[in-house]
Each structure stands twice: as structure tokens, then as C-alpha cells.
Design a protein around this nucleic acid. Structure first.
Lengths: 187, 187
DNA sequence: CGATTCAGTCTACAAGTGTTGACTGAACGG
DNA sequence: CCGTTCAGTCAACACTTGTAGACTGAATCG
């Protein structure tokens, strides 16, 4: 083994660098949005080079697509009350920590059309699943309101940092949970 | 009167041109956000010239500040139920038409810090007013949720154009109204 | 070991940006 | 009527951006 302990094999090195770039990209896209985040800034934060970022990810748009993929929620099924519980649990997660990738997508959504489509697709898909299991002829509308409420809460807490929403996730759920249950059952 | 009927006095001409620029700015800022809207595009849409836009408004940021001012809602007062009614009425307006200025502020909010502060200020001010009139020791939290719900609905309807929220304002209010009343009274 | 691949660096370019300043002609005020 | 003001136009600037390509040296492989 001629290799020093600080060195690594090429594939390891490549993976590490790509990972560092992706992490930096998520953080910066999430903090400043798509347009205000430059390839140069990402490269600097990752301790790398703009040219390398381009070679590894092809373009700024492709890098964003990889960095800002929205993690899908689990499947939705069961009775309205069970669905309410699943939605509430998912919301608790979203309120608890700040998923950098989703934040990047959310922040970019309003200035970068592709990101808007990403968010739209994620919300529409979930909404359809939910609506299919709800009673009442306004099920689609009610599930849409659930989506809007969720979106508003996440944005208000993580992006706007609205006063009053900086409570613990449990306190928030104590207030919002009943609303969601009401929306699912249609009372 | 030497002046032709198509011509106008200087102040008239100036006011007209400024108005055309502001209208164009609102539309483009609202549609594409702050960064992706160029002074050149605004000038072209207004049938004017970039240099003129600069001379009249000083800078792109100042133009945005004038174009994207958020109209304040009326004062909030009365019993919780009255407040719920006032909030619901204000929400109906926001859902009915698309106020170009507010949309511009909303869309820019996530990539342009000054716009975020504008939205934050508007929401915080309203939230404080509301919370002061609500019962319960979680009044601040509940009024925050009202703000988040409102924000989520406006964004989902006008910016994301989520399926299911394209109902008439009355249908939407029929679903959301009870939630707001519940949040104000604290049931 | 010798040839090749490839991670990483550096420089340069073409396009687009906000912004400035000079210029033109018509409206204005005395 | 003449000098001044000012709306509107045009061309250029300084700068930043994404991106491409040449180059270097170490890891890889037969």
C-alpha cells in the first residue's frame, strides 16, 4: 500500500466530493433560492471548484433537480380517522426538523417554474390519495384545504418564521390536529 | 391651444408613463418574481425605456418596493365571533381576485429578503391584533395558525393553482369558515 | 513500469444584468 | 420669442453569471 492514510481511492474521493457538493447545494438553494445561489458559491462552500460541479452534475438545473427532490410521504389509506392520524404524523415531522431538500424546492417554487411543478406534483398526488378515502361530495375540496393548511404551516414556520408558530411541534399539533380530523371526517 | 388632442401636458404624460411602468412591474414581478423580472422587460411591456424606468424610480429595488406594497386589511376588533367574521370576509376577498401587488410580494418573498420582511411585517401586525382579542392562553398560537392557513390558501390557489382549490370563494369559505371560527373561539 | 484515466484547478468567454450619461426635441415660463 | 426644463431615446459601462476547455498530477490498470 503506497497510499497515505489521508488519501483515498478514486471512487471514494469522487463520492465524497459529490456528496459535499450536494450538501452545500441543498443548504444554499434552501437558504437563498435558485437564482440567488451561484455555482461558484456552491463550489466554494463545498471546498471545490465551479468547473468540477459542472462536470459532475452537468448544469445548474440538473444539480438543483438532484438537490431539491421532495421526499414522498408514505402511502395514505384507511378510515378517515386513520387518515387524519397519518396526516398529522407526517405534519409533525415536517414541523419538527427542516428538510433541506424540501425547503430548497419550496423556496425555489415561486421563481423557478420546474420547482413549482415539483411541488405541485407532490401536493396533487398526495391530495388525490387523500380525497379518494374521504366521505362527502366536497372531498376533493376538503383535501385541498388540508394541503393548503399544511403548506401554509410549513412555510410560515420554516421560511417566514412567523411569531407564534415557533412553538413545539406537539403544541402546534394540539391546535391543528382537530382541524385536520374535522376536515377528513367532514363534520 | 397649440396642443394636439393626442398630446398632453408634461405632468399628465409623466403620470401616465409612471402608471404604465408600475402596472407592468406589478404584472411581471407577480408572474416571474423579482430576480427573473428585468428592467428591460418592464420597460418594454410599458412601452417605455430602461433608462426612463431608472430615472423615475431610482433603482430596481425601489421600483419593486412601490409595486409590491401589500395593502393592509382593515382594523380587527370585536368579539371572537365578530373577528372570525371579519377574517373570513377578508379571506373571501383574497381568494376572489388576484391582487397583483400582493402576489408580487408573495412570489418574491422567498428569494428577495426585503419582500420576505414585508410579508412578515404584514402578517405579524395582523396576527398581533387578532391575538389580543382572542381568549385562551394559546391565543398567539391560534392566531398564528389562522395566518398560516390564510397564507397557505392564497398561495395554493393563486400561485400553485392546486387542483381542488379552484372552487368558488363561497364554496371555499363554506369549508374554511368554520375552522377559523373554531380557531378564534378556541373550542 | 508505462500508458491511460480522471479528480481537481485555472483561465476565458459569451450572454445578460442594473445602471449611467449624453443627446434630442418638445413643452414650459417669463 | 428665447432660454430652460424635462420626457424620452440610445449607446455604453462594469459586473456577474453559467459554462467550456486546456492543463496538472496522482490513481489505476495491464
Amino acid at each position: 500500500m503506497r497510499r497515505l492514510k489521508l488519501m483515498a481511492t478514486r471512487v471514494e474521493q469522487r463520492q465524497r466530493t459529490e456528496a459535499r457538493i450536494l450538501t452545500a447545494a441543498r443548504r444554499l438553494f434552501g437558504e437563498h433560492g435558485f437564482d440567488r445561489t451561484t455555482i461558484r458559491a456552491i463550489a466554494t462552500e463545498a471546498g471545490s471548484d465551479p468547473g468540477l460541479v459542472m462536470r459532475y452534475f452537468g448544469s445548474k438545473e440538473k444539480l438543483f433537480a438532484q438537490a431539491a427532490a421532495i421526499p414522498a410521504d408514505g402511502p395514505i389509506e384507511g378510515s378517515p380517522k386513520q387518515i387524519a392520524q397519518q396526516l398529522t404524523a407526517a405534519l409533525t415531522d415536517k414541523l419538527a426538523d427542516e428538510p433541506a431538500a424540501a425547503l430548497a424546492a419550496l423556496r425555489a417554487m415561486f421563481s423557478y417554474p420546474e420547482a413549482a411543478e415539483e411541488v405541485r406534483a407532490a401536493m396533487t398526488s398526495q391530495q388525490r390519495q387523500v380525497a379518494a378515502h374521504l366521505p362527502g361530495d366536497d372531498a376533493v375540496l376538503r383535501s385541498g384545504v388540508i394541503g393548503a393548511l399544511t403548506l401554509g404551516l410549513v412555510i410560515s414556520r420554516h421560511l417566514v418564521r412567523l411569531d407564534g408558530l415557533d412553538a413545539s411541534p406537539e403544541e402546534l399539533i394540539a391546535v391543528v390536529g382537530p382541524l385536520i380530523e374535522e376536515l377528513t371526517t367532514g363534520a
